[in-house]
Design a protein around this nucleic acid. Structure first.
Lengths: 232, 232
DNA sequence: ACCTGAACACCGTTCAAGT
DNA sequence: ACCTGAACACCGTTCAAGT
């Protein structure tokens, strides 16, 4: 009774659905960049007004989160292998999605995706940390810490050209501001930076990311959480 | 010759300076919230048009970063005491500024402040990590990791009411979405979350932050960087 | 060099009115 | 319940013209 669309032939305007809106949003982000995936433009591509989208999403941040969840369908770890290698693969896949659209990462720092693909990533990451010997408490907290690191690192790149990939960025450009600031800081006001500051911008972005993931993973395995009581 | 302002009495419109613009921006952020510190409104409060600000700042992100640097004048560690306590104090002071204005934290995830107060924080943090036994390489990379964690955590709160403080937020509300997602995830699709997911939202925000800082600090002290060669 | 008004090209969100 | 056009209340940034 309610769904008579199948009886009609080629309806000029198919009804909106959550999935349809998300798909179109992902398409715009991939084709035109994150910045173009505004409420107005997504609605326009669906042949409607922006107000219609508010039936399905309370605000644009939630729409972005849903689009990210959709894109995370490619983020999976291998089924076999050492837990640490699988963890690296999983985070690498997660990072790949976000580094391709740094503006989306910026949005995800504030509103985390909670759809099926995100939940699968959280679940796998939690399982891998436990498999690696972490207690469930630190592992559960650690999932947030690891994903927050990857998300924030991807977001840092959102002011640069959208096509640039993290593996081949120019460190000279990336740290230009910091290098100048360190050079300006004399050894009286910033003695430690004067002595060791140049070490901050050694290595490739990939090396720094892998180091940071090691730092966090090792820290998770070594640091107990305050207890098992729930907050409040 | 050029500066004749001192000869005049009470000029109706004092000349713009970088410092004057930053001060007014900080004032607006504190009085009206981060969201109100737009180029147009800052300019209006300085009795000019938004275009005038572009003589001093290339875009609004740089103005925000300059305002944050100004606010970080209160972020210092004690002069004496155990290195770890001083590190906690320093990061706590840093966090206090950002949690008071989560929108500013959100902006800082992308454009890091590089003024004198920020440089002083970087320098002190670097010194404390080295004092704590970290090698200079990991310490230099670790400074970024620690500050990124605090910044991103503060930014996460930018969608909630601006007056709320991190120490007394309601965990029920904070994790409402995640809790629902975990509850929805059956043990077939998300076995690890089904078993341990509830541990993700234990503890207070402060406990989680202190745990995370311990994780990162211990990880920094235990994890060597790939080498001392500079990137390319 | 610095400053300005006006213009350009947009935003997110709400709401009354429709179906 | 869902959809819509129009309105509300703004944005960041650029630019030609001034001083």
């Amino acid at each position: 009774m309610e769904n008579t669309a199948s009886r009609r032939t080629r309806p000029a305007k198919p009804a909106l659905t959550r999935e349809w809106i998300v798909e179109e949003t992902v398409r715009i982000m991939r084709e035109e960049g994150f910045e173009k995936a505004t409420m107005r433009r997504v609605a326009a591509r669906l042949d409607t007004g922006a107000a219609s989208l508010y039936v399905y999403f309370p605000n644009n941040a939630e729409l972005h989160a849903a689009a990210l969840d959709q894109m995370l369908s490619t983020a999976t770890s291998a089924e076999t292998g050492w837990w640490r290698d699988r963890l690296d693969t999983l985070l690498d896949n997660y990072a790949e999605v976000l580094f391709a659209l740094p503006g989306l990462a910026r949005s995800a720092v504030v509103v985390r995706p909670l759809g099926p693909n995100s939940i699968r990533v959280y679940d796998q990451l939690l399982g891998l940390l436990i498999e690696g010997g972490a207690d469930p408490g630190p592992a559960a907290w650690g999932v947030n810490l690891l994903l927050q690191y990857v998300t924030a690192t991807a977001a840092e790149h959102s002011s640069t050209a959208p096509k640039e990939m993290y593996s081949d960025r120019d460190p000279q450009r990336e740290f230009a501001g910091l290098a100048r600031a360190i050079a300006d800081a004399d050894s009286a006001t910033a003695p430690n930076l004067a002595r060791h500051g140049q070490l901050a911008y050694t290595g490739t972005p990939r090396q720094r990311m892998q180091w940071a993931i090691s730092v966090i993973v090792e820290g998770i395995r070594a640091t107990a959480t305050p207890g098992t009581e729930t907050g409040r």
